[in-house]
Nucleic acid binder design. Structure first.
Lengths: 111, 111
DNA sequence: TATATTTGCAAGCAAATGCTTGCGTATTTA
DNA sequence: TAAATACGCAAGCATTTGCTTGCAAATATA
């Protein structure tokens, strides 16, 4: 059974984020990606491997080259989590609003 | 000058994501957070510190307790990046669409 | 078929990460 | 004032991460 990589962890690395942004524009093979970075080809290759392991990138073999294509559906997990948190957050402030309004009403009633 | 922590790195850890989700619902002090986890108070304290360093959480002192409040504006950086990538991605497919449509048109013209 | 190119895999290593334990400090409570 | 509570800091340690170098496999080219 394959251990599913964590998408959040995958995008934590700035180099990997750059790679994702690059292949989102257009599919690229590993060497083409590596040319844009100062690290070795193997380092890039490893980053790509991590990205494929969490489904953010898929490899299409074409002869001896391997093209990396972005699969950004996986980023859904990230936006979903962010939205989730934001929703709670908004609710929290709404509750505060309600409370303040209540205080205001009480004041009026008292007066 | 303070070294700004990376938001992406901050949310890479599942424990920290949980902490963010918790304090997004309501402010909590460190011990209250720690009770929900199996790790030590100090471990949680360290996670909170990391979260404050990247601005996702602010500490409000109240007596001897320190309340952690969420500051989710910082998550903007994450959603912005995701949207950015998605936009390129969509453009890529649009380009493919245009190409296919062109091929189709050419066929018709030829015929 | 011999050589060049693209790539993955494995070993090794320094730095970062996440955790624990022990101790000190500030604040509250008895 | 003395004890309890909430918390940060620092040291120590195992694991993970990110990188490099060396080598082997697959495919293309001469």
């Amino acid at each position: 059974m394959e251990v599913r990589r964590d998408v959040f962890q995958a995008i934590a690395d700035p180099t990997r984020r750059q790679i994702i942004a690059m292949v989102a524009r257009q599919p690229l093979h590993v060497n083409a990606i590596a040319e844009s970075f100062n690290v070795s080809r193997q380092a890039v290759s490893l980053h790509v491997k991590i990205l494929t392991e969490c489904g953010l990138v898929v490899i299409k073999k074409q002869g001896r080259e391997r093209y990396c294509e972005a699969r950004l559906e996986q980023l859904e997990e990230v936006t979903t989590w962010v939205d989730h948190c934001r929703q709670f957050w908004a609710t929290q402030f709404k509750a505060l609003d309600n409370y303040l309004q209540q205080v205001q009403t009480d004041k009026k009633t008292k007066r």
